[in-house]
Amino acid sequence: MSDEVHFGDEIVSREEKTRRVGGVFSSVARRYDVMNDLMSGGMHRLWKDRFVAKVQPRPGERVLDMAGGTGDIAFRMAARGADVTVSDINPDMLAVGMERAEKRNLDRLTWQVENAEKLSFGDEQFNAYTIAFGIRNVTDIPAALREAHRVLKRGGRFFCLEFSTSEWPGFGELYEAYADNVIPRVGKAVAGDADSYQYLVESIRRFPRMGEFAAMIEEAGFTQVRHQPILGGLVAIHSGWKI
């Protein structure tokens, strides 16, 4: 395994990537949800609704929402009665989520700082593992997938919502032009941070295509692996089962 990885388009050490990704999300935490609305035209809310509908969280189920940050996915699952542990490597993102939960009087959520590559939980603890728009920021994605498999119970399910590359002719190129020319400028205007959003654009471009990522999920031990493209694959819902 190489000691060097991509941080966006840059080549850096693994330790440097982990540190710099932390800096990105600490920088944007307070404006993260506003920026999501601006960058997606509010569509991220529909994608998350669709994602949680696929997860089908049930009352009393234990769900680990990794990279759960500001709580968007966890709030939706808690509303369906699931017992959700919201984990993120970045305490600043979790702090925003906890503040939002307090305003909504949501007290059934557990908040915990965790590294997706090396979770502190014991084996076979959860009925479902979710991660939305977070896996591409992990330094060692195969390690994170193995950890997801480890902490799931037999019969547990894995769900990931992530950007990919649209396979619609012309649309992918149109989105890339928008991402390159608009998103960093909006980041500078709204969040006061163009560089962090430039990294996020580059991280999307470098994330594996849907089929490649599905193969990584299978390699981690999951079965019945599926991916459901949205907007031709600009966003995709990935799933698998621990049998």
Rank of each mutant, 00 (worst) to 15 (best):
M1H: 13
V5E: 08
H6V: 02
D9M: 01
D9W: 07
I11Y: 03
E16N: 09
K17H: 03
T18Q: 09
R19V: 13
R20E: 04
V24D: 01
F25D: 01
F25K: 00
S26G: 12
S27G: 07
V28L: 00
A29V: 02
R30I: 03
R31L: 00
D33R: 08
D37V: 08
L38D: 11
M39N: 12
G42P: 09
M43L: 15
D49V: 07
R50C: 02
A53W: 12
K54T: 12
V55C: 14
Q56M: 12
P57Y: 12
P59M: 15
R62G: 04
L64S: 10
D65A: 02
G71P: 15
D72E: 15
M77I: 04
A78Y: 10
G81T: 11
A82G: 13
V84A: 10
I89K: 01
M93L: 10
M93D: 05
M93W: 06
M93S: 07
M93R: 02
L94S: 06
L94Y: 05
L94F: 03
G97M: 14
G97P: 10
E99H: 13
E99M: 14
R100G: 06
R100S: 10
A101C: 08
A101K: 15
N105D: 14
N105T: 12
L106F: 10
T110M: 02
N115G: 06
N115V: 03
A116P: 10
E117S: 08
E117L: 13
K118I: 11
L119I: 05
S120T: 15
F121K: 03
G122T: 12
F126D: 04
T130L: 01
I131F: 05
I135R: 06
R136Y: 07
N137D: 13
N137T: 07
V138A: 02
V138M: 03
D140K: 04
P142R: 05
A144R: 02
E147D: 03
A148R: 05
L152P: 07
R154Y: 04
G155A: 08
G155S: 01
L161T: 04
E162V: 14
S164Q: 14
S166P: 09
P169V: 11
F171G: 03
E173G: 08
L174G: 01
E176P: 02
D180E: 12
N181K: 13
N181T: 10
V182M: 11
R185V: 05
R185M: 07
K188T: 02
G192W: 00
D193Y: 01
S196E: 00
S196H: 00
Y197I: 01
Q198G: 01
Y199K: 01
Y199C: 00
V201C: 08
E202A: 09
S203W: 12
S203M: 03
G211Y: 04
G211M: 07
G211V: 02
A215C: 10
A215P: 05
E218G: 11
F222S: 07
I230Q: 06
L231E: 09
L234F: 13
S239T: 14
K242E: 10
I243S: 07
